[in-house]
Design a protein around this nucleic acid. Structure first.
Lengths: 231, 231
DNA sequence: ACGTGTATGTCGAGA
DNA sequence: TCTCGACGTACACGT
């Protein structure tokens, strides 16, 4: 990786056009050709960037640019989409090459898959007498997270999200419409389960007769007796 | 900003838990306290990070850590959510402080707002004899991008996207359902307008009687006589 | 390669 | 402050 601090201006042309006026910024040029332009604020998103696959070429500044103090022009071209990033360097403050090697990568825990597994194991959170039919029940338009039966034996389709928003309700609605056309399954009721359910999503769900269920991940995990937190 | 290259391991605990095994990585410590951990690949997203507002504190490594070669322990705490990032430094390769100043910021052009403005100005792209009623027509569940009337005076609701996907069709469908219940407006027909419409979205839209309209941004802009591209 | 669903999404606008 | 929708979303996964 090449780490650069420079006075520079940047132009992007691709799905939109964007321009950065001259200022001092940090440039990261990664081994795969990708480039990140960072300022001293914002969060992890760069001000501007080019994602791989792409390639960087150095050009000579033309007369106008040279007169305006441009020392180097870097053109980064996306290999497939023709998106371009042009970086005009006025002043190089730091320019370091660093050898990083291949990263062993991130290990994650605690996403939707866990919620689904835990709810399948603790299926009575849906209500007394519920039983699991299966996880990832396939339908023509995709898999329903959990298919269960209630105490009376009626089918229950469960859509699980970490955060329940309006999209998830739409998704579950499509599944329910389809499943209710299947005489072997109908009538199918819906449960929208999430760690947190946004008011608009709850309103829409309940308006459509879909039950909302807020999941307490820590409690579900505690019951299961999972590994302790790292710190 | 502080730019660091270091052998380090990283742990995150917050909405999920995540761990990075020891390796050489680039750390960006921004002025607002936020931290980014980058490897030499991936795209602009860091392997791990903490977004502002947050604060960094340095701790002494305990005996076990010191024995394992840990020289420094940095703890980054989110001010509101208690998310934590712990960085254990085994080896500092580069450690530079850089003064960047406030960035003048990004200037954008060519997003959905432009499409909406241009279509409102060139409303006959919807068909001969169409007239604009208003942009951002409010309904109970949100604003419709454009409300127009066709040659016969019937209401037309337009949803505009840069890229037309299934979500946009669902959104327009909700608006149409609602608006068609209003006797002052009904019958309202729908137009789904985008620079590019995905086949599945087109199929769903047409199945629901919604017309699809592909917008040529460059042509619309050309007619308007906007500024030339930067390069 | 394309479509779908998730994300520690991030970011900006509006209430 | 919170909520919602857009994003150059990116990313993993299944077909």
């Amino acid at each position: 990786m090449r780490l650069v601090v420079a006075e520079c201006s940047v132009d992007y042309a691709g799905r939109l056009s964007a321009h950065l006026p001259p200022a001092r910024r940090v440039l990261m040029l990664k081994a795969d050709g990708s480039v990140l332009v960072h300022a001293d604020g914002g969060s992890y998103k760069p001000l501007n960037w080019m994602s791989p696959p792409c390639s960087l070429t150095e050009e000579e500044p033309d007369e106008d640019q040279a007169a305006a103090g441009v020392r180097h022009v870097w053109r980064v071209r996306h290999a497939k989409t023709d998106d371009q990033l042009i970086i005009r360097i006025h002043d190089l403050v730091i320019d370091e090459d660093v050898e990083l090697g291949v990263d062993p990568g991130l290990v994650k825990d605690g996403v939707e898959a866990d919620l689904q597994r835990l709810l399948a194991e603790q299926i009575d959170l849906l209500g007394d007498g519920h039983s699991l039919v299966r996880r990832e029940h396939m339908t023509a338009i995709g898999p329903v997270d959990i298919l269960a039966r209630d105490a009376g034996g009626a089918a229950v389709a469960v859509e699980i999200k970490r955060r329940g928003e309006i999209d998830g309700v739409e998704q579950l609605t499509r599944y329910l419409e389809l499943m209710n056309r299947d005489p072997h399954l109908a009538p199918v009721s819906g449960v929208f389960a999430a760690q947190e359910i946004k008011p608009q999503a709850r309103t829409l769900a309940e308006d459509r007769g879909i039950r909302c269920l807020v999941l307490d991940y820590d409690a579900m995990r505690g019951i299961e007796g999972g590994p302790a937190r790292l710190f």
